[in-house]
Design a protein around this nucleic acid. Structure first.
Lengths: 149, 149
DNA sequence: GCCAATTGCATTGCGCGCAATTTAATTGAT
DNA sequence: ATCAATTAAATTGCGCGCAATGCAATTGGC
C-alpha cells in the first residue's frame, strides 16, 4: 500500500485556500477578453470601477478598499495616466496627497464597460443569481474572518 | 440627487469577482507568517504541496493543476533548487522533459508544514467545518464553470 | 532515412504585489 | 517659532504571472 508523505488535509484539492485561489485565477482569465477592447488589465479595471463610483480620490483612498499600497498603485496609475484616462495632481490643501481624477476619456470608458457585468454573469450562466449572491456574501465573510485573525 | 456614472452591478462591493479576489488576497496574507519559518512563499508552498503528494513530476505536470506555465514555474523551481529543496534533472527517456524531485531536505520540510492546515482552520475559527467544506465545493464549482465558459 | 510539425521547457519583456526605504509636507509639543 | 514625530507618495528590489518567442528533442508522414 502507498505511504503518503502528507495527510489528506494537506492535499491541494482539499484546501479551500486553493479553491479560492484558482477561482480568482479563473475570474482574471474570464475578464481578460472582455477588458482587452477597453485596453485595461484586471487590476486597472478594479481601479477604474472605484473611480467611476466616485471621482477625485487620493492614492490611499483607492488603495484601502483594494488592499493595495502605493508601491503597486503609483506605477499602475501612471499607466492609466499615459493612456489619458486619469489625471494625477497634487492636492493644493496638502501637497503630500496625489489626487486622482477621471478625464473625459476616462469617464466615457464607463459606458463601454457597462456590458461587462452582464457578460460575466453569462459566463456563470448555469448558476442562478440568488445562489451567486449568497455565495458572494459567504466568500466576503470568509475574507473578513481571515483578515480579522 | 446624485447621478452615478455606473449602475449597481458595477459597484466593486457588489461583484462576486472582487469578493473572490480579495478572499484570495486575505488567504495569501494569512499564510505569510505561517510559511515564513519554512522559507517559502505561498506559490512555492503550493508547488511543494503537489510534490509532497507525488514526487518526480515534470514541469508541466506541476503546472497543469496549478494553472501555471513554464514562464512562471522555471524561475520559481530554480529558487526552490537554490534552497536545496528539489532537484531538476533532464529525463533520460526524453531530454525535453525536466523532472522535479524532492531532496531529503525537501521531504523533511513536509513535517514542518503539517501544522499549517490546522492553523489556517484556526484562522477561520468561527466558521464550522461542514460549512467550510460546502463553501469550498461551491467555489470550486464556480471556478470550473468560469473555465468552461 | 529525411524533413516538417509538434512538444517541453527556457527565456524575455512587461505588469502586478509587497516590504523596505526615501523624500517631502504637515502636525504638534514645547 | 522651532524641531521631532507623523503622514502620503514615490522609489527600489524581488518574486509571481503570463504572452510571445526561441530552441532542442521527439514524432510522424513519406
Amino acid at each position: 500500500m502507498s505511504s503518503p508523505l502528507i495527510p489528506a488535509e494537506m492535499r491541494l484539492e482539499n484546501q479551500i485556500c486553493f479553491a479560492v485561489h484558482s477561482a480568482a485565477h479563473a475570474f482574471a482569465q474570464a475578464y481578460k477578453p472582455l477588458l482587452e477592447p477597453l485596453g485595461l488589465t484586471y487590476p486597472q479595471y478594479l481601479v477604474m470601477l472605484l473611480l467611476w463610483e466616485k471621482d477625485d480620490r487620493s492614492v490611499s483612498e483607492l488603495g484601502t478598499p483594494l488592499f493595495l499600497d502605493s508601491g503597486t498603485l503609483t506605477p499602475l496609475l501612471k499607466r492609466l495616466q499615459t493612456q489619458g484616462l486619469i489625471d494625477r495632481t497634487r492636492d493644493p490643501k496638502d501637497e503630500r496627497v496625489t489626487r486622482i481624477t477621471l478625464t473625459d476619456k476616462g469617464k466615457a470608458l464607463a459606458k463601454q464597460g457597462q456590458s461587462i457585468p452582464q457578460a460575466m454573469l453569462c459566463a456563470m450562466g448555469n448558476m442562478d443569481l440568488p445562489h451567486l449572491i449568497a455565495l458572494r456574501d459567504q466568500v466576503k465573510a470568509l475574507g473578513q474572518t481571515l483578515r480579522a485573525a
